[in-house]
Every structure is written in C-alpha cells, then in structure tokens.
C-alpha cells in the first residue's frame, strides 16, 4: 500500500477500491486514475476518460441518477476535481445515495510536468466538499485508514467524498482503449444488453 516515500501508493489504493467490485460502475478522471483502473483490469463497467477535464464527478452524477441500483465510483485526481469543484454543490443538492467520489490527491498536475496544484498549498478538498453540503467526507493520509475509506465508498450512504493523499511518483502507463464510442457503448451494453444499441 505504501510507496518508497512512505505515502500511499495510488495504484494499490485503486486495487483496494476495486477489489471484488461486484456491479460497481467506475468513472475515472483523465490521466493517472484512468491508467490506474485499467492497470487493475479493463472492464465494461469502467469509463476511463481521455478528456472532459472537470467533468468526471458530473458524469458520475448523471450515471448514478440513471442507475440508482448500482454503486457508482468516481475516481479522479486533485487537478481534475479542482477544475470541476462547483459540481460538488450540484451533487450535494441531488444527494444520490449510490455515488462516491474518491480523489487521489498527489498535489501535482502529473500529466503535464508535475506542476503543483492548490492542494499543495493549503486547499483542502474534503473541507470544500463539506462546505458544498456533502455530509459524508473523509481525508486519508495513513494506509491504516484505507479500509475504512473503501468501506465508505463501496457501502456507505452517498454521496460520499473521500480524499487520499498519495505518492506523486509515476507508475507504468497502462492505457485503456482510446475509442470513446466503444467505451460508452460497452458500458451501455453491460447495463441494458444489446437493446442498448437500438435505443
């Protein structure tokens, strides 16, 4: 679970979040979260994003409202979450019980040269989520707290918003399919069967 720096390894965190996932659907923000869910195992239940920065949480909201019987996990980075931070107010207002958002907070823009984000300089995303009206939040800095985070994200009453401080080191790239029409169609087919393509 720990990187050599002593901080939580984001891929191990992802592995813990997705272990025995059952019917859980996952939206991954562009960059590291998309590579991480793919490294754990590509699946029709995954939508790894190649773009739409700032939109991951809202895609999760639309999906969670459309599929109330499924747990929806949005796994994203601190830069992506900061760009769409207003959506936390929208999500708090809608209050979907089946939506969890987990931010892998490495305090850097990892895909663009490791420039520091605002979370490196005091911005606390979990506090912002509480301020937006999301009642269940968690900030995790110790590996020992990861199981409680996983339980809250997987089983707790949503909306849940968790922030995990992770090691900023690069991991091997594991790229998902790049054809977005396939990524979308395969999740729709998983949920609705072949009828999905006749809607």
């Amino acid at each position: 679970m720990l990187a050599p720096s002593g901080k939580i390894d984001r891929r191990e965190l992802t592995r813990a979040l997705l272990a025995d996932r059952g019917g859980m659907l996952v939206i991954a923000g562009l960059g590291a979260p998309a590579w991480d869910i793919t490294a754990i195992g590509d699946s029709p239940q995954n939508l790894p994003l190649w773009g739409g920065m700032g939109g991951a949480a809202m895609i999760g909201l639309g999906l969670a409202l459309a599929q109330p019987s499924r747990r929806v996990l949005v796994l994203t980075g601190d830069g992506e979450m900061l760009m769409g931070i207003g959506s936390l107010a929208t999500i708090a207002h809608q209050a979907p019980k089946n939506l969890a958002i987990v931010v892998q907070d490495n305090e850097h823009y990892g895909e663009t040269g490791m420039q520091e984000t605002a979370t490196r300089h005091g911005t606390d995303l979990a506090t912002m989520a509480r301020g937006a009206g999301i009642k269940h939040t968690m900030l995790v800095t110790e590996a020992g707290d990861v199981p409680a985070l996983v339980k809250a994200a997987r089983e707790g009453d949503g909306p849940f918003f968790g922030v995990v401080k992770v090691d900023a080191g690069n991991k091997p790239l594991v790229l998902p399919p790049r054809e977005g029409a396939i990524l979308q169609a395969r999740m729709r087919e998983h949920l609705m069967g072949p009828q999905a393509h006749l809607a």
Binding site: M58, A66, S87, Q94
Partner: peptide, 26 residues
C-alpha cells in the same frame, strides 16, 4: 423528471454524458 440545477453549464454537458451511459435521456 429529475431537474438538476447546475452551478455552470459545462456541468450539464457532463451530466448528459453520464445519463446516457446509464441509459437515460436528458
């Protein structure tokens, strides 16, 4: 109908993406 009041319109584009993924029209 689920009415989703947005803080900015770009949220609505992302919401429509998620709704369609889950089989709903928006």
């Amino acid at each position: 109908l689920r009415v989703v009041t947005l803080t900015t319109e770009e949220e609505g584009i992302a919401l429509m993406q998620g709704a369609w993924l889950g089989g709903e029209r928006s």
